[in-house]
Simulated assay, not measured.
Amino acid sequence: MKKTSYSCGLDAAVDVVGGKWKALILWALHHEPVRFGELRRQVPGISEKMLILQLREMERCGLVHREVYRQVPPKVEYSLTEFGQSLNTALIPLGEWGEKHMQTIEAVQGTDAASGAA
């Protein structure tokens, strides 16, 4: 997040949750604290490096809390902060919209891919 001023609320929200992975990570954390390995399994396709980078950024933004348990072997859990939970709640209607229109979106994207469009 580099911007210091926004033109509207949507501009600010997209800046916080932008990218492919953040919304999926938020959703994976919506019920309870999750350990790193489990989180990686819940977000298919994300690399370990990308998950680490995204979690660090989300922690800096105040969306995610990282709890380190001083034990052997070490244990680290990630959970949503109150701020992260509020964003996740705001994303629920977007997810419902995506579910409702998934076939249309897939069909359009399939047409774009077949025609060579970006």
Rank of each mutant, 00 (worst) to 15 (best):
K2C: 08
S7W: 12
A12G: 03
A13L: 14
V14L: 14
V14M: 14
D15E: 15
D15P: 04
V17M: 13
G18Y: 10
G19H: 03
A23W: 00
L24E: 12
I25Q: 02
I25F: 05
W27V: 00
A28T: 00
A28P: 09
A28E: 06
L29M: 07
L29G: 02
H30F: 05
E32C: 06
R35N: 01
R35G: 02
F36L: 08
E38Y: 04
E38C: 00
R40W: 02
Q42V: 00
V43M: 10
P44H: 07
P44A: 03
G45L: 05
G45H: 07
I46K: 02
E48A: 13
E48L: 10
K49R: 13
K49I: 07
L51C: 03
I52L: 10
Q54A: 13
L55C: 01
R56M: 11
E59F: 05
R60A: 14
G62V: 08
L63I: 01
V64S: 04
V64I: 07
V64K: 10
H65C: 05
R66A: 04
Y69H: 13
Q71Y: 04
V72T: 11
V72L: 11
P73N: 06
P74V: 09
P74F: 05
L80I: 01
L80N: 02
T81E: 00
F83I: 05
F83L: 08
F83T: 12
Q85S: 11
Q85C: 12
L87V: 13
L91P: 03
P93D: 05
E96Y: 09
E96L: 12
K100A: 13
K100I: 04
K100M: 09
M102A: 15
T104E: 14
E106M: 10
Q109C: 08
G110P: 09
T111I: 07
D112Q: 15
A113E: 15
A114S: 13
S115Y: 12
S115F: 10
A118M: 14
